[in-house]
Each structure stands twice: as structure tokens, then as C-alpha cells.
Design a binder for these strands. Structure first.
Lengths: 227, 227
DNA sequence: CGTGTTATTGAAGTGTATCAAATTGCGTGG
DNA sequence: CCACGCAATTTGATACACTTCAATAACACG
């Protein structure tokens, strides 16, 4: 890893949106002292399913996908996290190995905060514990909803949902058919055919690998998302 | 609701296994003062999806299922909780409405602890916050695994898994085909046929509505559970 | 400029839902 | 306690959405 100017928490752009944003100067300095930075190229793993959790990853820039594989090798993307997100805190608190692997989707820059430093911080800052609880609860809610949709929605419906989620949360990135399939729990072929259908109806537009949403309302309908 | 002798936390049998087991006398008394008890008949709802979370349910006895429904009415059982479990704490911390409904499976006896009392307790007891974090992390891990299995395993595989989970965690209860289907994300008919297959191979035995696991090892194999 | 990955299209097979009807079993009230 | 009625169970037939396999084409990468 190349030596690079150390990023400081109190000037880190991604901090503003993160869970650690309300910490005082002392706490931030403590993190600064304990953490170390790492960079990953697309496709590289931050950690692997089955590994013990040794700390917390704070995403400074880039996108990370969390994925699981079954014994046949089929991959399911569980979550996708961008700048400002914290990764790996679940395994930290449950004291269990990671169930998912974390993979860089594009060039990723993270700060790694060792487990001991994180736990100390949480123990000494009750409001921070509550923030973690809140964040984890929110993630849990999403996961429950995904389980429900996985078993009650059709493949095209889940693909529509995937498009909305991936495109709106990570606009810059052009996801592959394979990644869309892995998020939606289906195959690249089915994604293909569904995308062709959606384009035929003018709901999306494909130019090469880039997908543009033309009719968001109709796509929401297709995804069975009613708000 | 009939007047009944108030259950005290420090003599409550289910407490020994719960999250609140390490609390001191003062805290337990505070809960005792704030809580009130409720009983539900099978099929009755403790709360409904969409409701705002007003507190925490501590299961004294009985079994509660947490389920979600899609717009067509198809039900998915998300979790099943028995004596000693806490229910509804996720919505408490994320400050969002319940996404699932809680339904009594058999006669249920719970203590309801109002939100304000719980949050006060958590704020004043950092170790308790960490226990909640740990519990929530554990629940999250299960949910992730269920999502993965929902999208990569076949219906018979998920049914085998359902049998193991439901039968081993709640031995006394004879689950209906419908409930097994709702847990496994399939239909009662498919559950039927799978049960017939499993019985034909001597893996389980059905006597009326009661299912007995004869060959646990083979059932684990069927469920694609390898430890 | 070659090589491996991704995209695309087609054809075939099958797992599982859906629908329908008969039977059993259970709880409720007479 | 029995009978009734309704819900759960069981079995069969049908349909079709989706995966799987295979083969070509386009692309990105070193």
C-alpha cells in the first residue's frame, strides 16, 4: 500500500453524513490515532465471509458490495454501501464471523478502526450506542423487506426494484447484468429480457452498458413499490 | 382483561434467558412499575404492521410469530419468538412503524414495557445497549441467511429448513401446513408433497398433524445446512 | 491485437404455483 | 356429549415463469 497523506476524521467529507458525525474532538482524535487507511481496487475483498471481525470499516470514497455465496457458487448481493457508510459493525457486536464478503465495486478508500477502539468508544458514549442501534434497526428493516419481496415478488418485479435501488443510490456506477441479477436474486439472462421489455415500453433506456430511467413512476409500479 | 396476580421481573422464569437478566434490583423494580401485563388468545394480534411502536413486549409464556403480508394477502412469517424473547425492539430504536405484525400462535402472556421506560433504561445502562446491539446483530445475521436461502434454495430445501427450525425451537407446537409454507415462502400444497416425500424416505414421520423427525442428519442435508 | 469476460438470443426442460374437488379433522354450540 | 360446520389437509391436473444450457457477438483489458 502506497504511503498517502493521512485523512483526518474532523476534515473527512464523508463524516458529515455518517454515524460518527456527532462525536467530539477527543473522540475523533482517538479514532484518528487508532485507525489506518486502506485502498482497494475493483474486485478486491475487504474481508471474506467466515473471517472473524477485527474492526470497523468507514468508507471514505467508492462503493462496496456485501455478498454471500452458496455452496454451488451462486452469489447474492446483500447490501451495497457508499461513502460515509460503516461496514462490518454487525459482526463486531454479535461476536460472530462475517456472514458476507465485502468486495470493492470501484476504487475504494476506507478507514479501518480496530475492534477494541470501536467498543471502547461505544461503551463510553451511550448516544453513539443508540445511533448504532438505530442504524442497525434500519438495516434490519430493509433486510426484512427484501426477504418478503424475494418470496412474494416475481423476477421482473425484483429486477425493477434492483434498478431503482442501484441506479438511484449509486448513479455514477454502471452495474453489470450479472450484478443486477445477483442483487435481484435471478440470472443475467432474465435481467436481459426484462430490461428489453422495460425499454420496449419506454420505461428505461439503454445506451451500451448505461441504463437511464425514463419513467420512474411506471418503474415503481413494476417493482410493486407503493408509497 | 381479567385481573391477575402481577408477575414480578425478579421472579419471572423467562427472565433467566433474556436480555434483561443482568439488570440490578433497582432497574427491575423500575420495569415492574412501568410495565403492564397482557394476554392474547391464539390468532390475536399484539400489534399490526404499520402501527407506531409504543413499547417493548417481553414474552412470559407462549409463542409469537412476526409476519408480513404483501398487497395480494400472501403472508410471510419473518420470525417466531418464544418465552424470554423481546419483541418489537427494532421499531423502537429506528423510530419507524412496525413492518411486521405480531400474532399469538398459542395462548400468550407478555409484559409490555412502554417506550420511554425502555429508552431511559438503555441510556442509563451502557452494557444493556451493547446487549441489544448484540441481539439485534444476531437477528440480522439470521435474516441475511434467510434472504440468501430464499433466493438460492429450492422449495423442498426451504421446507426441510423450516421443519428443523420450527420443530426444534418450538417442540410442543404442531404447526399447520400453512404456517410451514408461510415460513418457507411456499404453498401448503408444496409443503404437503414434500412432507410425503420425506416420510416415504423415512426422514420424518407424520401421525395426524404431528411431525416427528426420525433422521435429523438427512433432514439437515436436505435443508443444505452444513456445519 | 489477442483473450477472456460480458452481453445477447434461442430453445428446451422443469419446478412450483394455481385451481379444483374430495376428505379429514377440529372446535363450537346445541 | 354429539353433531354440525368450517378450516385444514390431501390429491390430481394444468400452466407457465424461470432456469439452464448452448452458441454467437460485442466489448474491455492487458
Amino acid at each position: 500500500m502506497a504511503a498517502n497523506p493521512k485523512t483526518h476524521c474532523n476534515t473527512c467529507e464523508s463524516r458529515a453524513y455518517g454515524l460518527l458525525c456527532d462525536l467530539g474532538q477527543n473522540e475523533l482524535s482517538a479514532i484518528d490515532a487508532a485507525k489506518f487507511e486502506q485502498k482497494y481496487k475493483p474486485g478486491q475483498n475487504l474481508f471474506y465471509s467466515g473471517n472473524a471481525a477485527s474492526g470497523l470499516y468507514c468508507v471514505v470514497s467508492g462503493t462496496v458490495k456485501l455478498e454471500m455465496q452458496d455452496e454451488s457458487g451462486k452469489t447474492q448481493i446483500m447490501q451495497v454501501q457508499g461513502a460515509g457508510s460503516l461496514i462490518g459493525y454487525r459482526a463486531l457486536f454479535s461476536d460472530q464471523p462475517y456472514v458476507a464478503s465485502a468486495v470493492a465495486v470501484d476504487p475504494v478508500h476506507v478507514c479501518f478502526i480496530p475492534k477494541t477502539a470501536v467498543l471502547k468508544l461505544v461503551q463510553e458514549n451511550p448516544p453513539l450506542a443508540l445511533k448504532f442501534l438505530s442504524q442497525l434497526s434500519e438495516d434490519f428493516r430493509m433486510m426484512e423487506q427484501r426477504l418478503q419481496r424475494a418470496s412474494s415478488n416475481s423476477a421482473p418485479e425484483r429486477i425493477a426494484e434492483a434498478l431503482l435501488f442501484l441506479r438511484e443510490n449509486f448513479e455514477e456506477k454502471n452495474w453489470t447484468r450479472k450484478e443486477i441479477a445477483e442483487w435481484a436474486g435471478t440470472t443475467p439472462e432474465t435481467v436481459m429480457r426484462t430490461l428489453a421489455d422495460l425499454e420496449g415500453e419506454g420505461i428505461i433506456e439503454q445506451t451500451g452498458r448505461k441504463i437511464t430511467i425514463k419513467d420512474r413512476a411506471k418503474l415503481l409500479e413494476r417493482a410493486k413499490i407503493f408509497i
